[in-house]
Design a protein around this nucleic acid. Structure first.
Lengths: 143, 143
DNA sequence: CACACTCTGCTTGTATACGAACAATAAACG
DNA sequence: CGTTTATTGTTCGTATACAAGCAGAGTGTG
């Protein structure tokens, strides 16, 4: 009836996972920006992981946050420009640059944690409490 | 224990929805690129919706696909450059440009539908059949 | 008619995101 | 030791993504 193609496979864009995931992500991004305007989600993930780890090389930090090596370079550059992250040469490996959060970076991270919890909470707010656990479990299973 | 901050709120990046959604999306994008190298997910959504609608103005198509007006301009430009989409002036409203899929666009769309189904299928493959329905329902509820 | 308001499309600026290619360095190996 | 291979960080090119601001066109109200 309009959703029937020549080869007989009906198709609706709106029922494709990718299309729905993209929109769910858009909504989340907008919630994030409202609660934490000082950082993008990527920047927050980078600082958060660096604070968790204490220190890391740029590529290692990228792997820990699932950020491409080419991408995390720009992210780290912008965080360094804002003095939230510091870099020092690694004496053991001249290729590496060891990254550490600055005091300002650590302070910003700590100050933003409650908002980060609020972001997750608001993102999941359309779901019932039991549904949230199910959703997170399935989402994690899909990675 | 390292995940305890001064204000007492434990925090783990990996358990945040946004972080997990981003990774699930990354995996989906990589599956998409493998099955449909000719189009990006955004380009596919644009062509698919345009074929569904038959015709649309640029902004309207953007709203239908949840793509920003500034973003869809570039998407449509690239599709036009490849002769997958055609544009004609709207006689009723001189601001609008009516977009229609070309024959090549329609053909590409039709030829790619099976692969699109495969993308959704592979993306959901880590889940049990019942879990997939639950996941899609919750995902849709969250938009 | 004059005016405000809205819609449409465009442009600029910033930030991801990733493939591909590259040089420098390190490690593994014979 | 020298050769090969792998890793690290970088650069380039392409493609989203969205905020903000702009101009032109349509619509409504006084």
């Amino acid at each position: 009836m309009g959703d029937e193609t020549k080869n007989g496979q009906p198709y609706h864009l709106d029922s494709q996972v990718g299309f729905t995931m993209r929109q769910a992500n858009q909504r989340h991004l907008s919630i994030f920006a409202r609660h934490i305007p000082a950082l993008t989600p990527t920047q927050f993930a980078t600082i958060a992981k660096l604070c968790e780890l204490g220190q890391a090389s740029q590529n290692a930090l990228g792997r820990a946050t699932a950020i491409d090596a080419a991408t995390i370079k720009g992210v780290v550059d912008r965080l360094r420009r804002r003095d939230l992250v510091a870099s020092s040469p690694d004496p053991n490996d001249q290729r590496r640059v060891f990254l550490t959060p600055t005091d300002a970076g650590r302070a910003l991270y700590a100050s933003v944690i409650p908002a980060a919890h609020a972001v997750t909470s608001e993102t999941l707010s359309p779901l019932e409490p039991e549904e949230r656990e199910v959703f997170l479990r399935l989402l994690r299973k899909m990675i």
